[in-house]
Deep mutational scan, measured.
Amino acid sequence: MAEQVALSRTQVCGILREELFQGDAFHQSDTHIFIIMGASGDLAKKKIYPTIWWLFRDGLLPENTFIVGYARSRLTVADIRKQSEPFFKATPEEKLKLEDFFARNSYVAGQYDDAASYQRLNSHMNALHLGSQANRLFYLALPPTVYEAVTKNIHESCMSQIGWNRIIVEKPFGRDLQSSDRLSNHISSLFREDQIYRIDHYLGKEMVQNLMVLRFANRIFGPIWNRDNIACVILTFKEPFGTEGRGGYFDEFGIIRDVMQNHLLQMLCLVAMEKPASTNSDDVRDEKVKVLKCISEVQANNVVLGQYVGNPDGEGEATKGYLDDPTVPRGSTTATFAAVVLYVENERWDGVPFILRCGKALNERKAEVRLQFHDVAGDIFHQQCKRNELVIRVQPNEAVYTKMMTKKPGMFFNPEESELDLTYGNRYKNVKLPDAYERLILDVFCGSQMHFVRSDELREAWRIFTPLLHQIELEKPKPIPYIYGSRGPTEADELMKRVGFQYEGTYKWVNP
């Protein structure tokens, strides 16, 4: 592979701008107003304001973009700056750019259920340069409990009458099928589907988006991507930290609602779906819905739930269990780990287990898709061969690698495990991989909904998990304890083995 010439960040961002501006969906010269509902909250200060700053800094926003914060707290732009700027990672050389960014910011205080507050917000936006005809993007960085009041008031008082209007809704989209349907029906009564952007930030990850290209742009994968060759698929999300004093919020939802029903299920769809007619948003989402419709409700015998306990040999936070978090209700049975087996009941995947695993306070930070292939028929190497695996590593250190057998150097035919490896950090030294939120917010500006969740996708996802969630809430089974920093409950490994996964433990990928 030829040595790549190092590029400056300015040059890299210039390439990104060229890609972005050559499309006809990006209205570079139009006025846009980006409204952050819930501007005083954690999500706004840690993710949304920093993301908008990065896009502005790199010249990736339309030229005439204004940012308006809205929340109940009586704040000023200076207050917003004070709480969000520490997350910007701005350099001293960017000081003038930073001043320009905050000059485009404003803030309006108001209630979430008060019509007069929204009329005041609308008047404020109209007073901005060309504000009355601007395109408006409303980001709901809010708890779902206020979605209905907020969307109703936005629709009645704050819509642009000339430009387009788009609304970005953060997960969780309800707690179960019934609450999700209620919320979807409410929002759909106010906005068209092409105006609604239900954001799952995992769909903005580079390697998640790469799944489609790997599958449908490489001839070698087509013939082997089926039940005849693939023994099982494992989708993993692991965090090495616990709730760390923020367990009160987590306890309301648990690990299945927080990660599995959305992030992991979306990745499953991209692995299992048929080739779409095109890369058009609805063509892709149509195929994802077909996959979900082929999955039956989760069966309790295919589920393992766990909850982390303190590690007596650990240090600091590792010595504390979930129930030691003062914000967690006493005696909570909320799971911090889950392993679930699903089956896609169609011709391509009949009988292939899709194993979804996620948890907190585990032994490493990792998100990946792992396809394990069947054993080689007619073994001539005296059971020395391990199964081939194709691994798409989402985070950290984005990579695609194939675990395969090669001859060990020497005189004899002794096979050993090795890999074919594409590590993004080595291959793409001159490429700026956008943060997931950067990519998705740019998608909203461009009107691309491919990486957002459609209402029928959402409904099918909740259909699969709601009976299990209701059973857990009714019966309150005690989750299996696992030690902070471990791989999780051993019962999860036993479940995976029972459905056909072979864990060798003899080879570990190392970032080159």
Rank of each mutant, 00 (worst) to 15 (best):
K238Q: 04
G248N: 07
Q161D: 15
D114G: 10
G245C: 14
L43Y: 02
M212L: 13
C158D: 13
W53P: 07
F191K: 01
K152N: 13
E156W: 11
R215M: 02
T31H: 06
R175W: 05
F237C: 12
R136F: 12
I255M: 07
F237G: 07
Q178C: 13
I52A: 14
R166L: 02
F216P: 00
R182Q: 14
I80Q: 12
E170I: 01
I15N: 09
P62R: 07
L190S: 09
C158S: 10
P92G: 08
N126S: 08
F250G: 00
G59I: 01
Q111G: 12
K45H: 10
H201L: 00
Q195Y: 06
R17K: 10
I168R: 01
E193N: 00
A141V: 03
S132I: 07
Y139A: 05
A149S: 15
E170K: 01
M159K: 14
L61W: 05
A109W: 09
I15S: 05
R198F: 04
R215N: 03
L98Q: 12
L7G: 14
F88P: 01
L190R: 12
H32V: 11
H201W: 00
E206H: 10
S180M: 05
I230F: 06
I224H: 01
D42N: 08
F221H: 12
R57N: 12
K152A: 12
F237E: 04
T243A: 05
R192P: 11
K45S: 10
W53Y: 12
I52M: 07
R17F: 14
A231S: 12
P143N: 13
Y107F: 12
G41C: 04
W164S: 12
S84G: 12
N135P: 08
R182K: 14
E206K: 04
L16F: 15
D58A: 11
H186I: 08
L128V: 14
E85S: 13
Q178Y: 07
E156F: 11
T236E: 13
M37G: 07
A116G: 10
D58K: 11
I33M: 05
A109G: 11
S117A: 15
R120W: 10
L98D: 03
E239P: 00
G247M: 04
T65R: 00
I230E: 01
P144L: 00
Y107Q: 06
T236I: 07
S73T: 10
E85T: 15
D24M: 09
